[in-house]
Amino acid sequence: MNPANYVILSAILFSLGAIGVLVRRNAIIVFMSVELMLNAANLAFVAFARMNGNLDGQVAAFFVMVVAAAEVVVGLAIIVTIFRSRRSASIDEPNLLKY
């Protein structure tokens, strides 16, 4: 069982998350895609920790989780605030910062 498999899986999940960010219009689904990308990165960290034989990778994954949680909190609060004033959760709506 080649541990590289896990890294390849992580790459696939990461790309799927990237597609999700770019293709979906609902802000919350975009956010979930970002979370997916972070999870893919975590998987890679854990796989490498196993490959190298020390726990630094797992500690890094731990920190990623903590920071992602904090980020989700603040990000969703922002989405709620925007929704309150604009009554829409689409990320294509606020497009005034253009030429």
Binding site: V21, L22, R25, I91, D92, P94, N95, L96, L97, K98, Y99
Partner: peptide, 12 residues
């Protein structure tokens, strides 16, 4: 300047 379309997804 036309690349600045205002859509966050284009920037992404």
């Amino acid at each position: 300047r036309r690349t600045q379309s205002g859509f966050a997804r284009s920037y992404a």
